[in-house]
Structures are given as C-alpha cells and as structure tokens.
Design a protein around this nucleic acid. Structure first.
Length: 297
DNA sequence: AAGTGAACCTGAAGGC
DNA sequence: TGCCTTCAGGTTCACT
C-alpha cells in the first residue's frame, strides 16, 4: 500500500517517538518476512540509540549510533503503530494500521524515549511483502536496493529535462516508465495514475513520443514533472494533516480516506472542468490503470 | 533489450 | 450463512 507519501507520513509520525530513543529490547516473532531477517538482527539492535529516522524512496532508514542502519520496507500491507507503556497521553495507534489483528505483529521494538518514557513500536504486515535489512552506513550506497534507485519526485531535480532524458527512445507506456524505480524512486500505482490524469496524458502513450524538443513536447514534459511533484507534495501534506487530526480523535488515520481524481473511480465522471468523460479501468503490465480516455491524450 | 506476466502472501469484497 | 473468485497501493524473476 504505501507509496512514498505514506512512507513519509509514517516517518514523520514515528520521528518524535524514535529519534533519540534507545532500543531496549526487540521481539522478532518469525524468521522471515519477504526475506529472512538478517543474521544477528536482534543483537545488533538491542542497546542501540536511534540517531535519526530518514527515508529514501519507499524505504525507512533508522540510523543507529553503531553506524548500522535498520532499513524497513513496508511492502503492500506493512504498517507501524506505537503503544505507550503507561498513562497514554496519545492514542494507542497513531501510524496507519489498517487492522489491529495482532496475529500479524511480526516485530516489537521496546524503546525508552528521551524523556524516560517507555514505548513499544510494533511492525504489523499481513501479507509479509515488507522486509527489514541491517546495513552499515558505508554499505548503503552500493547495496543493490539503493545503488540503482532513481531521483526523488520531490524538489526540483524532477523537471522537464529529467523527464525528457528518462523517456527518450522508449516505446514503453508512460505508466510503466513512471513506475520504474530506477528512474523516479517512490512512485506507485495510485500516484502515477493521478499524475498522468493531472498532466492530461494517456497512460498508454509511448514515453518516447513526448521526449522531443519541440515546444509542445517541452510543455508536456514540464507539465508532467509539475504534476508528479504536486501530487506527491499534496499527498504528503494530506498525510501530515491526518496525523495531526489523529491525535485529537480516535478515528483511523486519514490517508486511506484521500479522495483521488481518477484512482478507483471506474465508471464515474471525470472531475476535470468541462470534460464530462467517463473514467475507465484498464490493465497495464498486470496492474490497474485508471484514466479518462476523453481528456488524457 | 524491452516488455509482459507470474510469483510471493493474506484479507476484503462481491457474486451466487 | 458460506463458498468461490477476484483484487489489492510492491518488487523480483523468468520468459518471449
């Protein structure tokens, strides 16, 4: 489930609990998730202080005082929640947890926070497509999961020129190219659909067909770069507000209640002003694509 | 090389 | 109610 904005929301939610905290104890409840847990997983974590919580693409990076990094990928269904041990000031769950089914609580981190308060951070993942790795700081950039990663879809590195470079000579559909983590890292199915809708581009169109240097192509590249950046930035902002809201309510975290412009809107009317088209669902390389055949060309 | 589909795993939702 | 099928926001691998 989590694409970049969701992972960033999780990071922001966990940061105040984890940064500066000490990992007192780790309960590793099974031998593997998507992959086996690394050798010495528990031993290398217990007693460590968490210096910083960072994110790269859809990976969460816990920087430890031992110079190890705990890397977490949430796969399709992974989530964290935290529980305060005593006198709960905040509600028990605060980071997206779809189900409170404890049968899929695979890892429990017992931490002591900087104020001395004890807390548990629990990783739950029904489908177990997520995974955790431990790397030394120096191993990170050459690791196979990171060395090939593309640029972040935030900030201004993603611009018309970058898009043109990625797309040149490619017959691959726009949808598939935008999902390629080696080019842009962190986009998933939902936000690719949303960005293409926003840029009025047909997901089936060959990427190379808009990679030229004509005025028209330049505009398409720039519009798409802007659309991707805006969609991601707005989703992160929405995730942030859902976190804030959550603290004041007992409801579920908001980022599943996002309303999307095309995603999961098959058969509904296109929301673009004056379009009036009907959203269609198609399948591209095995995944659902939602688009408006009338205004996305 | 590029493109597609299957596989990993569980749960939710819809049809009958 | 229950049984069956389909689908899910990610990634990797094997095949054409």
């Amino acid at each position: 489930m989590p694409e970049l904005p969701e992972v960033e929301t999780v990071r922001r939610g966990l940061q105040p609990v984890l940064e500066g905290s000490t990992i007192e104890k780790v309960e590793q409840r099974r031998a593997d998730l998507r992959f086996p847990f690394p050798e010495g997983f528990v031993r290398r974590l217990e007693g460590r202080n968490i210096r910083a919580l960072a994110r790269r693409a859809k990976y969460l990076l816990w920087h430890l005082d031992s110079n190890d990094i705990l890397i977490c990928h949430l796969g399709m269904s992974g989530s964290f929640r935290f529980e305060e041990m005593e006198s709960s000031i905040l509600p028990g769950d605060f980071v997206h947890q779809r189900s409170r089914d404890k049968t899929h609580d695979h890892v429990v981190f017992h931490v002591t926070r900087t104020d001395g308060q004890a807390a548990k951070v629990i990783y739950n993942d029904p489908r177990r497509f997520g995974f955790m790795l431990l790397l030394e700081e120096s191993e990170l950039e050459n690791h196979r999961f990171f060395s090939g990663l593309g640029i972040e879809p935030t900030g201004n590195t993603l611009n018309d020129e970058a898009i043109a470079g990625f797309f040149r000579n490619k017959k691959t559909p726009l949808k598939a190219v935008l999902l390629d983590q080696r080019l842009i890292a962190g986009l998933g199915n939902i936000y690719v659909c949303e960005a293409l809708w926003r840029a009025c581009l047909d997901p089936r169109r060959a990427a190379g067909s808009i990679s030229g240097s004509t005025r028209r192509d330049r505009k398409r590249q720039a519009d798409l770069a802007t659309a991707v950046r805006d969609v991601i930035a707005e989703a992160i902002e929405a995730g942030g507000s859902s976190l804030r809201d959550y603290v004041h309510t007992d409801g579920s975290l908001g980022y599943f209640q996002h309303s999307f412009n095309v995603y999961d809107r098959e058969g509904k009317v296109c929301l673009r002003d004056g379009c009036g088209g009907t959203i269609r669902r198609i399948v591209q390389s095995g995944r659902s694509t939602f688009h408006c055949p009338k205004c996305q060309r």
